[in-house]
Design a protein around this nucleic acid. Sequence first.
RNA 1: GCCGGCGUAGCUCAGGGGUAGAGCAACUGAUUCGUAAUCAGUAGGCCGGGGGUUCGACUCCCCCCGCCGGCUCCA
Length: 643
Amino acid sequence: MKAETDKIKIKLSDEKQIECVAGTIIKDLIDHQLTKNNLQEIIAAKLDGDLVDLSRPLFTNTSLEPVTFDSAEGKKIYRHSTSHVMAQAVKDLFPAAKIAIGPAIEDGFYYDFDLDRPFTPQDLERIEERMKEIIQQDLPFQRLELSKEQAQKIFQERREDYKLELLKDIEEDTVSLYQQGNFIDLCRGPHVLSSGKLRAIKLLNVAGAYWRGDEKNKMLQRIYGTAFATPEALTEYLKRLEEAKERDHRALGRQLDLFSVQEEIGPGLIHWHPKGAIIRMTIEEFWKKEHLKRGYQLVYTPHIASRKIYEISGHLETYQEYMYSPMDIDGVPYWVKPMNCPGHIKIYQTKLRSYRELPIRYAELGTVYRYERSGVLHGMLRVRGFTQDDSHIFCHPEQLPAEILQVLDLVDFMMSTFGFDYHAYLATRPEKSIGGEEAWAKATTALREALSKREIDYKIDPGGGVFYGPKIDIKLLDALGREWQGPTIQVDFNLPERFDINYVGPDGNRHRVVMIHRTVLGSMERFIGTLIEHYAGVFPLWLAPVQVLVLTITERHIEYGERVLQDLRNNDIRAEADFRNELIGYKIREGQLAKTPYMAVIGDREIANGTVSVRTRKKKELTTLRVEDLISKMKKEIADKII
RNA sequence: GCCGGCGUAGCUCAGGGGUAGAGCAACUGAUUCGUAAUCAGUAGGCCGGGGGUUCGACUCCCCCCGCCGGCUCCA
């Protein structure tokens, strides 16, 4: 460390470097050097890549980069500071509350508290008011670097049991604490300079959360909130949340009459109404054709199976908690299938397989039932009975890379057909797992290389693999940005062993197959649920339940309307009619609210010319087309699956 | 499963110990109309279910069911 009179060099950018006296506070430096070019308020700084408080003094040559709210790091710091202010407000109003953890998260922050009474919505309002007062007071965030013992003493005095527990797990001798006003928190930082920097805050909701995410631990109360650099940005965000709610597949499912869940039948069990069913059927037909094209063979397997098969597969050992209790059939317990693999394996094993037959790819739209805990059910996205677009590929080890690549190709093709955004994860070997190190390495490499070859961005999910093999998970995003497990590609070393699945190699000996479990949509329920949100209910023509609505102006146009309707239907176009004695504006409004892609209006002029007046849901300008031209235009759009 | 909130007509929602309300939808009638709401009328409710408090409960209390937001867990 240099003496305070010494000069140090600070690199501000590739072109700009300045000198200052050692000990200069970053904020002072920034006030002099950077404010003119930066309208955005600076939240923190990055010194040689490390995030630090603006209140930190500079002692060595370094590069300095300002951090603003624009950056992900800036948002994180800003919101993390807001969570501290919230914790301070809670402690002010509820001194008995103990603080746990309070990080920034995507779009906001939370803080967990332990308090013997629940926070009410009114409490949230009070807390928010108190936070605004704290912001008004403009309390500086002070960083304290203390020995672990000193920190322990502080949190003992304050009876912050959770902080003490966190401290125990910290290995370093010194820890950092942040204080604003009378509030002290164990925290790495950095933070904004003072509470007054926080401009637009909002508390959103309270929820239970287990201490350290473990359901054996005490349940704490988590308050969620968010913060933005300007009130306008906050309002914008809240508006986005409202809009997302309107895309919610549960609301749209009711409005568009796609599906329902019946209390008397049971939660988590989906009823597909005619309009939802036709969407599903269209996707399933497409799916089947595509699989046959790509060398899959379609199979069907039973919905129940005797105990024996699940003993062999290991389901009773490792998966029983998700399986529904067995029924007695002639004294033998039968279970409803939670997965399709055993059935496919047994089909494979009906004869001796040669290496020449491999790979064998069995595919099935297989309906499975799994017990899901009541609190996790969610519309069509998390249910108890669902149809997986399942397949099991049996191959020999050398074929694994090519097979994975082919599956990934199919996944990508499907996702792009539907215009879907997705995130990919490569889940690696978990601690509790079976199979040799070499096999794992080979399979993981095959998965990784397939992802790179397809140029799919992915994250590693360390230890997230299944016990029997590594996997690629594709996550779909719902309207609120929540990720849902969709397509998955899993390599399996386990079932081939348990079932003794073989093929006869060129050497005449039996060899163990490698098995891939995969789905390319996930399940019909979850996929279509997410699709509803993705399209906001506005299905592309090829999927729209009603593709064209034939509308008449008055009763004298009905006869011609009937002919047009039949003409469309004869051409495999899903056409419906509204010949009611209602105003045309009224019928159009209904069609528009149902998000019908085309409406064909018929009046005197159209009958005279053998045409229809065509209105699309997107562009509202009208065109007059001969019926056969409308048919060919629609047929092309359907065939091309235009999104 | 756990924590919190909610449950009133088909849908969206008001009401808050003393006879249950609106809009839309439905139904009936009139209107025969040119691209997002024609007019009039009618009907519709075990106020999620059960128990309790009370002279009286949709309203207050308890239990159960379901839904919503999270946590934990998954296609």
